[in-house]
Amino acid sequence: MKIIVCAKRVGHAYHSSTVDLSTGHIDPGKMVFMLNPYDEIAVEEAIRIKEHISDCEIILITLGIFEAEETLRYAFAMGGRRINRMIRINYESFDPWETALALSNVIKKIGFDIILCGEKAIDDNCSQVGTFVAELLNIPQVSGIVKLDIVPQGKKTLVERYLGKGDREEMECCLPALFTVGKGLNDPRYPSLPNRILAEKMKIEEIDWIDLEFGSEEKALTKVTKFFSPKPKTRKMFTPDSSLSALERLNLMMSGSSSKKEGSTVLEGSANQLADHLVKFLVQNKFLSKEDK
């Protein structure tokens, strides 16, 4: 089995002064750089798969400038000898499409069974590259998985992901496939020192952007034009209409324009009767009939 993990070096902004208000640029000096936490989960998952399936090859790929090698080495150190290759594509792009083109180009040549990437990168917050790569390679994908089981025979996987409200969806997906991993899939390990020493010595294969074979049409689809400090969006709130009379406006304000429920009477009686009322209410409003089994 061949597992490819895409890992990114990201800048993490932890201070409100990250954007220079006067120039509209972000200041890298005011950020810290690290392996994207979601990609870290992907690396960990690959290592865990290899711990169970011995016949397995792990290849780490990153796209970025020279500094990205440090990040790649950190990812390598997590797995040590379990990781077989490291590849860096020497290019940096803000456009997910360009990134995905480069990655898929390289991945296609290597071959794969499973591709793992983070659900999103904490810097641009795009969550697109994974899906782009899947589409470019024409393979199925599931995003934001929190559980990954490989069915030994039949090249199939069972995955789970969150649907909101704490619900999870279990899906079956055939291989080869791409999964973007979400928080909660696993708890990434901390590299041991021997593995770090090993990582320092490992060779990283470097591929130059120009060496990738692209069509002439394939270029960036978006462009970042400006950085600025966040401002909350004004949310709607109840406002009395200016055309109402002063008294009506005042009354609306003083009542808090609240959704007071009118007309319900206060029920009294024995505890049993009252309990019946409540249960009836629940039944009428279908809170009891719609139990899932």
Partner: peptide, 9 residues
Amino acid sequence: YNDQVYITI
């Protein structure tokens, strides 16, 4: 960027 930065694309 961790909600610290808005970007226009």
